[in-house]
Amino acid sequence: MVKLVLVLMLILAVVGILLGAIGSALLGNEYFVPVPEVHLAPQEVFTVGSFVITNTLLSAWLTTLVILLLFGLGTRKMRFVPGRLQGFLEFLIEALFGFVKGVAGEKYARKWFPLLATIFLFVAFNAWMALLPFYPTVGFTKDGADHITTHLFRSAGTDINMPLALAVIAFLFIEIWGFRVHGIGYLKEFIRIGNPIQMFIGLIELISHFIRLVSFTFRLFGNMLAGEIVLFMMTFLTIIITPVVFYGLEILVGGVQALVFMGLTLVFAVMAVATHGEHNHEDSEAESH
């Protein structure tokens, strides 16, 4: 039975390659699927007044709705002996909370967890939802084109505004907690008067904090966009079977990116609230994560 399935999959993969762009180029046929056009910016779906509703924004709202629906159903009737959905959500939350507690400790974990968990859920679900079949197949045609020119939904992670918004939130969260714990003394980290080398280090430190905005943004944006391009290109080149491997990879990438975004925010926050004397230790801890 397994052998039969494998043989069928192999046949389908070969058919897919022959029908795809690779086969078309070799056999001189027309392309079976339209040539993908890569655009960095999101696409307009409709406008409300002067506000443009993009497909990435719709996707973000859909993801938000799905997350709320999932948690709403799972926590509607909380029972001491949980059902399947409640059990799954408890497992997820417990795993994330354990991760946060392991890095930040019990005291900060309880305060930081809501924001960090939301980052994880929003990034991961955005990435995973984009793998659903209706994302690349539902859309509109414009200007008499014979293929979809505007998709209804597109992964919000591929819209730079979404990673940037999360980066701003993470940045504010980190710096606010730094000031909250150390007060105005938190600025001593950046303004080091006296030794010119120390002053330079302070300046570098200040820049590095702002650079986080860029690194947070482009890490997520780049990974999500690259994943989407890979999926589109593999579908264009091989049509079926082969892209499934990359879909699997993207499931992993979505989870990893969500964890990385959350983890880095957590580690930077730990570094911000740590006393200056502990910085070396915290730095090494952050690197290990």
């Binding site: 910016a41 999101p42 938000t64 997350i67 799972g74 408890e90 505004n161 918004a165 999360l166 701003v168």
Partner: peptide, 30 residues
């Protein structure tokens, strides 16, 4: 890249609302 201040604000608001609802509806209870 399509950086847009309005979209950025919408994402910020969206995320904040999601976080708040999840906090009261899910995190706190779970």
């Amino acid at each position: 890249l399509g950086i847009d201040l309005t979209s950025l604000l919408v994402y910020l608001i969206n995320f904040t609302v999601l976080g708040l609802i999840l906090y009261f509806m899910a995190y706190k209870r779970i």
